[in-house]
C-alpha cells in the first residue's frame, strides 16, 4: 500500500470505526441484553452498567421459563436442534443435487438447458406465501406436512437455485482446456469432474453452501406453516417468548445469541474459502 499521511490515517481509522460501530452495535446490544433481567433491560434511562446474570441462558437450556404468571415450558434447545438438522441436511441435499446439475448446465449446452436453469432460478422470484397455500394442501394430501422430509424438500426451493447458479458460474470460469487436457491424459469424464472440476470450483462450492445454509437457517415462513411445535426451527420457536405476561426480552436476546452462533462460526471458518473463491479468476494458465 502507498504511504499515507498521518492525517489520512487518522481519518481512515475514524471512518472504519464508525462503520464497525454502526454494524456491530445491535449485536453487541443484544449480547449485553442476554445477561440482564427484563427489569434492567426496560429501566429508563437505559444503562450499560448492570449485574450480569446467566438466568436467561439457564432458562433456555433447561426449557423452564419463569414468568410472572408461573413456569412455562419452552422447547428452545429442541428448536435449535431442529434448525441445525434442517439446515445441514437441506444444504447437503442441495449440494448433492445442485453441484452435478451446475456442472451439467455449465459444460453441456443442450436443447432447453437455459430454460430449465432459469425455471429453477425462478423459484426464488415467487413470494413464498404464494407457493405456501397450494403446497400445504398437497403436503397434507401426501402426508408430508409436519415431517422433516417434507420440510427439507421445501427448503430445496431456497437452497437448490442458489447453489446451482453460484456454482455454475464457478464451473464456467474453469477453462475447458484444463478439463480437456485431463480427458486426453486418459481419464474418464467422471474422474475429470471429481479430480479437476470439483477441486477448482471448491471455494465457490463452499461459498454457495454457506450462503444456502444461512438462507435455510433464517427461513421463517415455510417452517411456520408446515411444521408443528416439535419440528420447528428457532426462527419460529422464538415466537414462544411472546407470552401472556409480556415479552421476555432477556430470553429473546439469549436465544438470538445462541442461534446466530452456528452461522457466525461457520462464516468465520469458511472465510478463507470465501476469499479464495473471490480470487479464483487468478488460476488461469
Amino acid at each position: 500500500m502507498e504511504a499515507m499521511s498521518p492525517l489520512e490515517r487518522v481519518l481512515r481509522g475514524i471512518a472504519l470505526t464508525l462503520v464497525v460501530v454502526f454494524f456491530m452495535f445491535p449485536i453487541v446490544w443484544i449480547f449485553l441484553m442476554s445477561f440482564q433481567t427484563n427489569e434492567t433491560i426496560l429501566r429508563i434511562p437505559p444503562s450499560i452498567v448492570f449485574t450480569p446474570t446467566l438466568d436467561n441462558y439457564a432458562a433456555l437450556i433447561t426449557g423452564k421459563l419463569q414468568t410472572a404468571a408461573g413456569t412455562l415450558d419452552i422447547a428452545f434447545m429442541r428448536n435449535l436442534g431442529n434448525s441445525v438438522f434442517l439446515s445441514v441436511v437441506s444444504v447437503a441435499v442441495a449440494l448433492a443435487l445442485g453441484v452435478p446439475a451446475a456442472y451439467a448446465f455449465a459444460r453441456h449446452k443442450f436443447r432447453g438447458s437455459e430454460d430449465i436453469a432459469f425455471t429453477l432460478l425462478s423459484f426464488r422470484f415467487a413470494p413464498p406465501l404464494l407457493v405456501l397455500l397450494p403446497l400445504t394442501q398437497y403436503f397434507q394430501w401426501l402426508g408430508l406436512s409436519n415431517t422433516y422430509f417434507g420440510l427439507i424438500w421445501v427448503y430445496q426451493l431456497i437452497c437448490l437455485p442458489l447453489i446451482l447458479w453460484i456454482v455454475r458460474g464457478y464451473f464456467e470460469d474453469i477453462s475447458a482446456d484444463v478439463e480437456y487436457a485431463y480427458r486426453i491424459a486418459g481419464h474418464s469424464w467422471f474422474s475429470t469432474f471429481r479430480k479437476i472440476a470439483l477441486p477448482l470450483a471448491g471455494p465457490g462450492i463452499a461459498a454457495a453452501g454457506l450462503l444456502a445454509f444461512i438462507f435455510a437457517w433464517n427461513n421463517f415462513v415455510f417452517a411456520l406453516v408446515l411444521a408443528s411445535a416439535d419440528k420447528q426451527p428457532v426462527t419460529v420457536g422464538a415466537l414462544a417468548f411472546v407470552t401472556a405476561s409480556g415479552i421476555q426480552y432477556g430470553q429473546i436476546a439469549a436465544a438470538i445469541v445462541l442461534s446466530i452462533t452456528p452461522t457466525l462460526a461457520l462464516a468465520l471458518y469458511a472465510q478463507r474459502y470465501l476469499v479464495e473463491g473471490l480470487s479464483l479468476g487468478a488460476v488461469k494458465g
Binding site: S175, D177, V178, Y180, A181, Y182, P199
Partner: peptide
Amino acid sequence: FQNFALFPH
C-alpha cells in the same frame, strides 16, 4: 495446449 492448460491445483 496453446494456453498450457495446466492443472492449477
